[in-house]
Design a binder for these strands. Structure first.
Lengths: 146, 146
DNA sequence: GATAATTCAATTGTGCGCAATTGAATTGAA
DNA sequence: TTCAATTCAATTGCGCACAATTGAATTATC
């Protein structure tokens, strides 16, 4: 009988770069939950708000490009955030195909309550600052190479 | 008016380690799709098969620990893979609470057709071997620290 | 040996995430 | 100018992903 451990070593779970990416992503998102629950935001909603806290107004398409999300994901998330009163959605005057997403007063307020989240998360992660820096650099290089 | 770019620099999307993890994970999974389509596997099903190609038989709980997945995710995935004939599910004789998942003949066959997938994926990624190695190391350290 | 606590898979409900499609608005080419 | 191609958001359908709960099986405590 073939040695299942070694006949295709490239198929070992531990030899796939994709898996730790997938696992890390899910695990870190789980760590956000208690902090985001306080803000009544899901992780995806939080990402949208991060962009809006930087750029008060932008098109749905630009938002999708920033977050690597398509309209199938964004449309319902943006509708939910509008229901919560954190942003407004309107069509562009220039081009009615474009949806302009703008942060509301309440959305701006929420920024102050969210300010502690990154620091709270950082305390869950036990990486040296320079290792975190290197991980960050490699992830962006990886992302850029795809 | 406050400078929205700088009043909470820690809230900038680009300053969050979580985001490139999340984006890389999603993008890399997308790259798998054309190759996994040929095998008629989803990414999650592929992960399950990777484990089974290493360990021909194990409990659902062990599988969940290996993949960081809970029963709510695994139960329907395992049922689907059983329907496809790639594995079998049975209760443990020792402890009826445990579900034993075992690879089938067809599941073993599929391994040969999957053998090229890691190499095909690697060609999508433009990282030096030592950078990939370092990324790998940091991701596992990160995962272990959570 | 009764029963309380624990440990499982399974179920339920919600929210993505995305491929594929639709339909409206705009742009481009003849 | 007409009509074909493009570019958008929105919709549809499917498959996770996971929190919370349920109920059965097992283990621990008394």
């Amino acid at each position: 009988m073939a040695n299942a451990k070694n006949d295709y070593p490239e198929l070992l779970l531990e030899n796939q770069l994709c898996f730790p990416l997938y696992a890390c992503s899910k695990e870190i998102i789980k760590r956000y939950r208690p902090f985001l629950d306080e803000l009544e935001l899901t992780y995806t909603q939080y990402l949208v708000m991060l962009v809006l806290w930087e750029r008060q107004s932008l098109s749905s398409k630009e938002l999708g490009q920033a977050l690597y999300l398509d309209s199938g994901t964004l449309t319902p998330v943006l509708k939910k955030l509008e229901e919560k009163g954190l942003l407004s959605r309107r069509r562009s005057d220039d081009d009615e195909r474009n949806l302009i997403v703008s942060i509301s007063e309440a959305g701006e307020e929420l920024k102050h309550r969210a300010a502690h989240v990154p620091q709270s998360l950082a305390s869950c992660v036990k990486l040296d600052a320079d290792e975190a820096q290197e991980l960050y650099r490699l992830l962006y290089k990886f992302l850029g190479s795809l």
